[in-house]
């Protein structure tokens, strides 16, 4: 598998979007599910690209191009995959202020949509006060935050605390490259999910799906 990831990463860096897409289709034909495509292929390839930069083998210009292609592939794949019927649940996603790594957030949004959730993605640069106001108006069941850079951990904490106070009691989900570091600061609970891998998210979604009617009528605990 590692060789396939390296090959895939090279295609991303060289801008060969069609060969990347063909490869994803081949994975799908072989029975790969979305968790595999997103985590094992796209995320692994981007991280491998990060390691090439660390070895001085590529420049950030290459990273930029690869990120652009990865973004397109996430959108394309999200459109190609079967989506569950709408389940009435809502999730909003955003990067904490100062964070511009949003590929992970896009992946998670796509995964939720695939499971029938109504989603709103605010991407990067939404200030906390607007995030809180949006949370109040739209009353999402889940608010997902992404944090990739260590310098943004304090901002993540501030966002989490403010959003957790929303009266309708959403579940706050924290993911991204720094989710592990965040987990060292905070304990997960029923209302705080620290997702250190996409598999966690997949499991959580499945559990929530079966659990749904009870939770929906239970309201804020």
């Amino acid at each position: 598998m590692q060789m396939e990831i390296e090959w895939f990463a090279e295609q991303l860096i060289s801008g060969s979007i069609e060969s990347c897409w063909e490869k994803l289709l081949r994975f799908m034909d072989a029975g790969a599910n979305s968790l595999f495509i997103y985590e094992q292929v796209l995320t692994s390839a981007m991280r491998y690209i990060g390691s090439l930069w660390e070895q001085n083998l590529i420049s950030v210009a290459d990273e930029h191009l690869a990120s652009g292609l990865c973004d397109i592939l996430i959108t394309r794949y999200g459109m190609a995959v079967n989506q569950a019927p709408a389940n009435g649940l809502k999730a909003m996603f955003l990067c904490v202020e100062g964070e511009t790594h949003d590929l992970g957030l896009k992946i998670v949004g796509a995964l939720f949509r695939e499971h029938g959730w109504d989603t709103r993605s605010y991407g990067v640069g939404l200030p906390l006060e607007l995030a809180v106001a949006s949370g109040m108006n739209w009353r999402p069941d889940v608010i997902g935050l992404s944090v990739s850079m260590a310098a943004n951990l304090p901002a993540a904490r501030t966002y989490e605390e403010s959003l957790a106070e929303l009266f309708h009691g959403p579940t706050i989900m924290i993911g991204g490259r720094q989710a592990g570091a965040y987990a060292a600061l905070r304990q997960s609970s029923e209302r705080l999910v620290l997702a250190t891998s996409l598999l966690d998210v997949g499991e959580w979604l499945r559990a929530r799906q079966t659990d749904m009617p009870r939770r929906r009528s239970a309201g804020k605990s």
Binding site: I17, W21, I72, M79, A84
Partner: peptide
């Protein structure tokens, strides 16, 4: 045009929501 090219995405499995 998420693909960048002029052609349709190579395949869309049915049913599509």
């Amino acid at each position: 045009e998420a693909g960048g090219g002029r052609r349709e995405p190579a395949r869309r499995p049915e049913p599509i929501a």
